[in-house]
């Protein structure tokens, strides 16, 4: 019986990814590409993805931008507010490497240094298709328990 339920919950994690977006110093290029993901042409609702307003309702965190010093604490705080299991997707090149801003004294330059990232989506900015694919991949990771939040819990 409990098996059925855990199976059900696992499936539903794949079927119902709720997304929250943080702009941590992006040039907003990535952010204006997130909105079309939920607009008629791409329609993320087909795979159950919904953009949420509160981090408390979130499964997947999209983070864009090279993480400026001012937003660093904010990102950490919001990540903590997301109930597990949760996945983090780094959008674009900035959270991976700092992109053109590399070498700026006011950025951290790597999302990994602030929160554990599960998926990187390269591009400046990535296209909506790529973002949706990342969401789907992340939800599969959530289903299989492969996200870092889930793995770290099981290690403990």
């Amino acid at each position: 019986m409990s098996n059925i339920f855990s199976r059900l919950i696992q499936t539903s994690r794949r079927r119902s990814p709720w997304v929250y977006r943080i702009n941590a110093g992006s040039c907003n290029g990535c952010d204006i590409e997130v909105a079309p993901c939920f607009s008629p042409r791409y329609d993320g609702e087909q795979i159950g993805a919904v953009l949420q307003g509160s981090p408390k309702h979130t499964d997947i965190l999209l983070i864009s931008g090279p993480i400026t010093l001012r937003t660093q604490e904010m990102v950490k705080d919001v990540y903590q507010q997301i109930p597990s299991p949760k996945a983090v997707i780094a959008l674009g090149s900035c959270p991976a490497s700092g992109n053109v801003f590399h070498g700026s004294p006011t950025i951290v330059g790597s999302a990994e240094a602030v929160i554990p990232v599960d998926l990187y989506v390269p591009g400046c900015p990535p296209r909506p298709q790529a973002i949706l694919e990342a969401i789907q991949k992340a939800s599969v990771m959530l289903e299989k328990g492969e996200t870092r939040s889930q793995r770290e819990v099981s290690h403990e």
Binding site: N23, C27, G29, I32, T68, T71, N99, V100, S104, P105
Partner: peptide, 28 residues
């Protein structure tokens, strides 16, 4: 919140690279 010191970075790079850099002042 989004301060990336673009003006500072621009003074460290040549004109060709600066054109790419200032494109990232704003994505819109």
């Amino acid at each position: 919140f989004v301060m990336r010191s673009i003006e500072l970075l621009a003074q460290r790079r040549n004109y060709i690279r600066d054109l790419v850099l200032v494109e990232h002042v704003c994505g819109i």
